[in-house]
Write a protein that binds this DNA or RNA. Structure first.
Length: 315
RNA sequence: CGCGGGGUAGAGCAAUGGUAGCUUGUCGGGCUCAUAACCCGAAGGUUGUAGGUUCGAGUCCUACCCCCGCAA
């Protein structure tokens, strides 16, 4: 098949990579505009652009693809367009451009979690599984027919990065399978059950702030869902502390004569292998944190350096 | 030149310009039914790099390298 590939971040790389080593032909790669700064003020290419250039592919970048891209893309005479986390909404005109329309790789089990943060939503809600759906793109966000699905399981140790890495890989596999099925006409189209549709909003920095009055289990979900970005974080002396790794601790196993009710939510007790923090309903044992300006440190390293003292309150 | 924190023993941190220490880890020894326990001892450093100021620099000045948080 003659393909136009639209994608931007790392999540799209496995898909592009697999397409490159398949029999399909990539006519062009469309990606978001370059970002202007890293810490040194250098220009940074979207990951997809870097990979595309490395393989000598034609790269197109638009502020608004629906306004600017139609003409150029039409001339490529592609069979299908593929979007993997591209980052822009496609107009109906674009969707009609190719014989097989556009298919999209979406990282949830549709119709659950349409929208911008499907992987985070699955983690925040404590689901025990999530997955990736290959779907026909229609004008309404993530509402088209489902063509293929791959699932993965979630544990209380699974982070956003884990889900991201696994689903980007599963997505690539499912994408190739779907392309083959479209090509030989065996693809099955399953309409979404609109009554079960849920939507997710884009995650921003604020979503990382920890409210210690909430139950330990929910804070743990937040920690995993925000790792690595934006990171679940709290404050100590006005400085940000990211919580990278934690576990719920049964208060009955909390070996301390302290009466927890005497302390505020967010009060921490530093032990060599755990920083125990009081939450709304118990104890969260934190094993890895990152202080502002520091590398990630284990609880033992925090303890050795005396960086956080017992009975101080975070938040 | 976007803002800011940092680089000291394997690791994490201290040290008004005046003998580079602490916790932990490692190695050796001791105690214990036992240990994330305790006691004794040892090794481990050109303080990121290059200059400068000074009787004397981890500390002050200049340039550079590297790591990280924010912002994007």
């Amino acid at each position: 098949m003659r393909i136009i590939f639209l994608g931007t971040p790392e999540f799209a790389l496995p898909s592009l990579q697999k397409l490159l080593s398949s029999h399909h032909k990539i006519l062009a790669v469309v990606t978001q505009k370059d970002k202007e700064t890293n810490r040194k003020g250098e220009i940074v290419f979207p990951p997809v652009k870097s990979l595309a250039l490395k393989h000598g592919l034609k790269v197109l970048q638009y502020d608004n693809i629906s306004n600017e891209g139609v003409c150029a893309l039409k001339q490529l005479d592609a069979d299908i367009m593929i979007t993997v986390a591209y980052g822009q909404i496609l107009s109906q005109e674009l969707l009609n451009l190719t014989k097989y329309g556009t298919i999209n790789v979406h990282s949830s089990l549709l119709p659950k979690y349409r929208g911008a943060s499907p992987m985070q939503a699955a983690l925040l809600n404590g689901d025990d599984e999530t997955g990736v759906s290959i779907m026909q793109t229609v004008l309404e966000m993530d509402a088209g027919d489902i063509l293929n699905v791959e699932k993965m399981s979630i544990s209380n140790k699974t982070t956003l990065k884990d889900v991201h890495d696994i689903l980007s890989d599963l997505g690539a596999t499912a994408l190739l399978k779907t392309l083959d099925e479209i090509e030989d006409g065996t693809v099955k189209r399953l309409a979404q059950d609109e009554t079960k549709a849920t939507h997710t909003k884009k995650i921003n920095k604020q979503d990382g702030i920890i409210n210690w009055a909430r139950p330990a289990k929910e804070i743990l979900r937040q920690i995993n869902a925000m790792n690595p970005w934006p990171g679940a974080f709290t404050f100590l002396n006005g400085k940000i502390i990211k919580i990278l790794n934690a576990d719920v601790i049964d208060p009955r196993n909390f070996k301390s004569a302290l009466d927890l009710h005497l302390y505020n939510d967010g009060t921490c007790f530093v032990f060599p292998h755990n920083i125990c923090i009081k939450t709304g309903d118990g104890i969260l044992g934190v094993s890895c944190v990152q202080l502002e300006g520091k590398k990630p440190l284990t609880a033992l390293e925090i303890f050795n350096g005396g960086l956080i003292k017992s009975e101080t309150t975070l938040g």
